[in-house]
């Protein structure tokens, strides 16, 4: 396990922000920490990346103790924080070269590396423009590129796509998948369920500083139940007939009957055969897998308005 935490606790004043977190991340995998605002995602990332001291817990990154061997941990990680850490008054290239110099690459190598990363993150045209003229997506890409100058083993990404439009988000996802292909371990946080689903091997759902669920995306979905078939009818009569035969949940307004399913073609066939015999053939059939949204709501449901 390249990242390990057990019994991680952190309180600010009398409020426990992290209340006993245990987690493990396998080398080369993508781990997503999912949670609403204030769940403790940023705090977890800051502690694991040596910026904030934990109150308690045994924490290791690449075998190094995060508290006692912070300098060694810093040598193998990189952090892309929740807010872009780029200099607006420097150009993209200057920002990258600066990081390269701080990583002691030497002048020529720092320039080469900057050039490589600009190309990889599709910033060549904007390379010599000041970053303050960049769009949000470009800034975020440069921010990630700056974290990759030294080819770290573990990358911490705090909400890498928050505030990005769908196209920029896709570019970011591709960049993250590329990193995984080179064997880099990714520890990311997100509020987007779809993002965790698409990118992560393992997901941990955090709420108010506590782990409410963890596992693969599929395992989490299984927790809230299996697939569902939505059958839409053209008449209330047909809907009624179908509901008597199949049970399930009726939406009278949209004339839709939802029935549980195991997701197989056999089940679909038997449902349709049954309805044909009863002379209540649906006009449309759609199959739904539970989304992480369902998981999220089921697991982190709270009184009042969701955060």
């Amino acid at each position: 396990m390249i990242v390990e935490a057990s019994g991680l606790r952190k309180a600010y004043g009398s409020t426990a922000v992290l209340d006993g977190i245990d987690l493990e991340v396998a080398e080369g995998s993508v781990f997503a920490l999912l949670g609403p605002n204030g769940a403790g995602k940023t705090t977890t990332i800051r502690i694991l990346s040596t910026l904030t001291k934990p109150d308690a817990g045994n924490l290791r990154v690449a075998g190094f103790d995060v508290v006692r061997e912070a300098a060694k941990v810093r040598g193998v990680i990189s952090l892309t924080g929740q807010y872009a850490a780029v200099d607006g008054e420097q150009t993209g290239r200057e920002n990258l070269v600066m990081v390269g110099r701080l990583m002691h690459l030497g002048r020529a190598k720092a320039r080469d590396r900057a050039g490589e990363l600009l190309e990889r993150f599709d910033l060549v045209d904007a390379a010599d423009r000041r970053v303050k003229t960049y769009s949000g997506g470009m800034r975020r890409r440069l921010d990630l590129a700056m974290s990759l100058v030294a080819a770290p083993e573990v990358i911490f990404l705090d909400e890498p796509t928050t505030g990005l439009d769908p196209a920029s988000r896709n570019t970011m996802w591709d960049a993250i998948r590329d990193l995984v292909r080179t064997g880099t371990t990714i520890f990311l946080t997100t509020q987007y369920l779809e993002e965790a689903d698409r990118l992560a091997d393992r997901i941990m759902v955090l709420d108010k500083g506590k782990v409410v669920a963890h596992g693969t995306a599929d395992a989490l979905k299984a927790k809230v139940g299996g697939d569902r078939l939505d059958l839409r009818f053209t008449s209330a009569a047909a809907l009624g007939v179908a509901a008597t035969r199949l049970g399930g949940f009726t939406d009278r307004e949209r004339l839709v009957l939802s029935v549980p399913s195991d997701g197989t073609a056999t089940h679909l066939h038997s449902v349709l055969d049954d309805l044909r015999t009863a002379n209540a053939v649906p006009a449309q059939v759609s199959s739904h897998r539970p989304t992480l949204d369902d998981v999220f709501l089921a697991l982190t449901s709270r009184e009042g308005v969701p955060a």
């Binding site: 990346s49 810093r74 040598g75 952090l79 850490a85 780029v86 701080l102 974290s147």
Partner: peptide, 13 residues
């Protein structure tokens, strides 16, 4: 007060 200090502090410098 920007992310810059966090970036620098998370680097081995």
């Amino acid at each position: 007060n920007s992310g810059m200090i966090d970036r620098l502090r998370s680097m081995p410098i």
